[in-house]
Design a protein around this nucleic acid. Structure first.
Lengths: 348, 348
DNA sequence: ATTATTTTTGCAAGCCCTTGCAAAAATATT
DNA sequence: AATATTTTTGCAAGGGCTTGCAAAAATAAT
């Protein structure tokens, strides 16, 4: 078994460069470059001549070397924190597709717990990404400033940072929370409760805020509230026990996330023996695939994820091509998805 | 609003290079380089001098330029197809973490449906990735050959390609299928059925094969089988209707995936009015988070995803540092997770 | 204080490509 | 056929970094 600790020269031995193609084709290096540069001036015969040599050698241009000259990598950094929440798989699906469709590649960074966002941003900037989207924790002024200086468009996705020196794309979570409230107001239940998301998530806060506003403006009040420790089924179970175990048990609950809602439904049914939705109306947020499952039939609020991703990529690719001062915020509306987890009041 | 269509020179104006640092620090370019190259020979005073200048200017080395010399990008390409299956979010979580922990960045490519794997592989290779992991469709000989020539280690993740001129990390799906069979054999049901995955997925085939083997070696037979069109809840609903609607309805069914199993449970309960698990034993595959939900309590087979990712990254980083001929295959065992979706036979 | 050794430093070449410029080749004009 | 115009080509200078080599500086040995 041949085993070699690679040295740089070792490795580049088996790498075919434009130089090689030029030599084989008997043309200049520039000619090869132009053949592989869309829109460059090359005659037809030159093109075939170079392509023949390139094909024979299996040449592929080195986009990194190219980017050194062009100052463009076609790389977009995507920094995510929430690898537990199933909606982020959808988000990633949309992002990778949308970016690929525009000729960008996705440099994916994970900043789940432990990891330092600041540090990750530094790492990704070292790769000279053309743009950066962050859907994670607190985006420090240092990061925004760094991006600004280097003219790298930066988009906060699905969260609303305090300072607005970056682009923001998010759903209108306050309105989403209101929507949830409005739906529960249609139920025959009047003891409103909120199973909120983690206390530090900006989305969780806004969803809750909108819900409170809607309920209170209708002359009612939210009599019970608790924060889930995270957006997960098991965290939901704990919070659900807490919420349903109260003496003044709520009977119309908005859960800041479908996973929490599903946990609440299960705890209500199997631990508290409640009949749903007769004894308890529930509405969730996100519309994950399983919200539609027969076991849940969960009414919920959906964020327009695909549209949000599209906006993000639009902003990025526009700003990458045309730098301009100023930041944009695009806030998209949520939509309610009605299923049968709410016991509607008899309509008059 | 200042708006400029960037030219290359425009953009590099606001980029601080090692050259700048050298000038400010009054030292040579090489000195700066050495300060930022771990293990290079630099005196203490030189280091502080350079670092001071670097900090003042906010210098960050350009790793792409570096990689031109070092022939190493610290980029690992990850090509995924299945952005619908929730386990892949877990997979991505593990991959990004494991790679980051070893100093690699993840270049994520999506080859869902439409997209051409061959083409995506080409794109990712243009970025001179140091390694490549593919968990998607058919890995063509062209791809493997290309990687081999360029000495880029290539790992097939969670699937077993026909030709073995690449590394392979996967779960032992045949054994996993057997495990599922063994569990169902413990039930009091004897009319075995299989809700298989998409007919073209290598994992689906193996899971099914193992299941058949286990059942038949025990002297029984699988009386009903159907393929889901994809690994999703809604595909599961369709297949479940088909399977349960048969005149010789099976009563012990192995579903090649938890989502399919959950769909089957729902259809069985809500459309066929069956009591679970009394009238129908079910076992799934994957152990997604919601398999543990009270509504399902799904017994299932779990692939050791984290360990699989670890093996993959081990192979990659070892082979990246030390090229050697030959390919390795690591096949890890699945484990059964017992919950209550199987009606156990009274033990003797 | 000299000389021999070890460390640090800078020089310059190179990694793989793009691109402005001017020369060469092809095409159009009279 | 000779000139003017347009296209194609090659040259050479980068882009931002690393690194082998030899000179310079610091340290050790005599």
């Amino acid at each position: 078994m041949e085993e070699t600790t690679d040295t740089a020269s070792e490795r580049n031995a088996n790498r075919v460069t434009a130089q090689d193609v030029a030599r084989v084709a008997g043309v200049s290096l520039s000619a090869v470059s132009r053949v592989f540069t869309p829109g460059a001036s090359v005659s037809a015969k030159m093109r075939v001549r170079v392509m023949d040599a390139a094909d024979k050698l299996g040449y592929q241009p080195n986009v990194l070397a190219r980017s050194l000259m062009t100052q463009r990598t076609n790389l977009v950094g995507v920094i995510l924190a929430n690898f537990k929440n199933p909606v982020y798989l959808t988000v990633l699906d949309h992002f990778t597709r949308a970016l690929q469709a525009r000729g960008f590649r996705t440099l994916l960074l994970n900043v789940s717990d432990g990891q330092d966002l600041e540090e990750m941003a530094r790492l990704v900037l070292q790769y000279s990404v053309d743009g950066l989207v962050v859907s994670a924790g607190a985006i420090s002024p240092h990061i925004t400033e760094q991006c600004y200086k280097r003219r790298i468009p930066l988009v906060a996705f699905a969260r609303r940072p305090r300072r607005a020196n970056l682009h923001v794309v998010c759903a209108d979570s306050v309105a989403g929370g209101r929507l949830a409230g409005a739906r529960l107001l249609q139920s025959r239940h009047r003891r409103f409760g909120l199973l909120a998301g983690p206390a530090n998530a900006s989305t969780a806060i806004e969803r809750g805020k909108g819900f409170y506003a809607e309920i209170e403006e209708a002359g009612h009040s939210v009599i019970a509230m608790t924060h889930a420790r995270e957006y997960s089924y098991s965290a939901g179970v704990d919070s659900a026990r807490e919420l349903l175990g109260r003496s003044d048990r709520p009977d119309a609950i908005f859960c800041a996330n479908d996973l929490l809602a599903m946990a609440l439904m299960d705890v209500a049914r199997y631990e508290f023996g409640l009949t749903l939705p007769d004894e308890l109306s529930i509405i969730g947020f996100d519309d994950v695939d399983l919200a539609a499952a027969a076991s849940y039939q969960l009414s919920t609020i959906r964020q327009p994820l695909e549209a949000m991703v599209k906006e993000t990529v639009d902003i990025l690719s526009h700003r990458i091509n045309t730098w301009s001062e100023g930041w944009e915020t695009r806030q998209l509306a949520c939509v309610a998805v009605d299923r049968s987890s709410i016991a509607l009041a008899p309509s008059d």
